[in-house]
Amino acid sequence: MKKPCATLAIAMLAWFSLFTGDAQAQFPDRPIRIVVPYAPGGSTDIAARLVADALGKSLNTSVIVQNQPGASGNIGAAAVARATPDGYTLLFVGSGIASAPSMKEVPFDLRKDLAPISRVVSSQFSILVNPSLNIHTLQEFLDYARANPSSLNMACSGTLTAAHFALESFRQAAKLDFQTIQFNGNAPAALAMMSGQPPAGIDAAFSAKNAVTAGKLRALAVTGSKRSPSLPGVPTVAEAGIPGFEAGFSLVMFAPGATPKALVDRIHQALVAALKDPAVVQKLEAQGFDLIGSSPADFARELEADIKANEAFITGLRRAGVIQ
């Protein structure tokens, strides 16, 4: 004869399994929220809204983008890590999140608290100056920076973000000495550059396009292996004076860590379907993105490799005194 407690436990487990299975089968039955952990108007925000619209059509539901900036993306990421793992709260973030395990006082465990869904798209950065500097080429900028060691400030979208890694790689490759000023996202960084405080910096090539076209910023070079469709007249850093230089970023998607695999796979399938829509492809490519849509398993492997690579890079920055 079964004990009453054991019988009750079995019954509750059976009910929970039935309930969760039914909930997953009906997914989605309400709007989905995508958290972008940066300020509105930046590269990640722009891409997130394009992806959210397409994902909503693929899943036949509303997908809402919520900006939750701060701490280089870690505030928004922590909010998703704490969210109910039911597929209705997702994170859309820059690949610099792979530095989280190497950062101090990060309120989540990247490997445990977030479930990889996909590396969605990739793109590249641009090196920018305020026109008041009267600098028109990357070589002129290098000459200016070397003639004014330690007095040049450059804007960046946050500590240990992909933009920060690209800017530090640029510093090392060019053998420059400048101060990096960090902002909560690339939109605030771009606004600061347009005001001349600081007069130079880094931003995604496509999100800098409007400011460059309007003459509010000048693009000296892009950081990819080839020119950006967003700034086709701007040479690569390698073309413009630093042979072999290349840096970029990707935008990735996560769910809360305990999200059932079936839900992660369902979201990924819908994402891949969305990324195959010719209209979506055209919109994303027009913004300078290369579409990826990697599987959860592939992204998980790539993420682990990124974590280890970033750890080594961050260790070098700490030894050099660039960061604490």
Rank of each mutant, 00 (worst) to 15 (best):
M1E: 07
P4L: 09
A9W: 09
A9P: 00
A11S: 12
M12S: 14
M12Q: 14
L13T: 14
A14K: 02
S17V: 12
A23T: 12
Q24G: 05
A25S: 15
P31D: 03
V36L: 00
V36P: 12
P37H: 13
P37G: 05
P37A: 04
P40T: 06
G41Y: 05
T44K: 04
T44Q: 11
A47L: 04
R49N: 14
A52V: 05
K57Q: 11
T61R: 01
T61V: 08
Q66N: 12
N67Q: 13
N74A: 01
N74K: 00
A77L: 06
A77C: 04
A79L: 10
A81I: 10
R82E: 13
P85F: 00
G87V: 00
L90M: 14
V93Y: 08
V93L: 02
G94F: 03
S95R: 11
S95V: 07
P101M: 03
F108E: 02
D109F: 08
D109W: 10
R111C: 03
A115N: 12
R119Y: 02
R119E: 11
S123R: 10
Q124C: 04
F125H: 14
S126I: 03
L128V: 07
P131W: 06
P131N: 09
P131H: 10
L133E: 09
N134T: 15
H136S: 15
T137N: 09
F141R: 11
A145G: 10
A145H: 07
R146M: 01
A147R: 08
C156S: 14
A162Y: 11
H164E: 02
L167D: 02
L167G: 07
R171I: 06
D177H: 11
F183M: 03
G185W: 04
P188E: 05
A189F: 06
S195M: 14
S195V: 05
G196H: 03
Q197F: 13
A200V: 04
G201C: 09
G201M: 05
A204N: 14
A205H: 06
A205V: 02
F206V: 07
A208D: 07
A211C: 03
A211L: 15
V212E: 10
V212Y: 09
T213D: 08
A219F: 01
T223E: 10
S228I: 13
P232S: 04
P232I: 06
P232F: 09
G233I: 00
V237A: 06
A240L: 05
I242E: 09
P243R: 12
F249C: 01
S250R: 11
L251H: 15
M253L: 15
F254S: 11
A258T: 07
T259V: 03
P260Y: 03
K261R: 14
K261A: 15
D265V: 13
R266G: 02
H268A: 13
H268R: 11
Q269R: 15
A270I: 01
A273Y: 00
A273K: 15
A273W: 00
A274L: 14
A279Y: 01
Q282D: 13
E285I: 02
E285Y: 01
E285F: 04
Q287D: 14
Q287R: 09
L291G: 02
L291D: 06
D298L: 12
R301W: 03
E302N: 14
E304C: 04
D306E: 15
I307D: 13
K308A: 15
A309E: 15
I314Y: 00
L317V: 08
R319W: 00
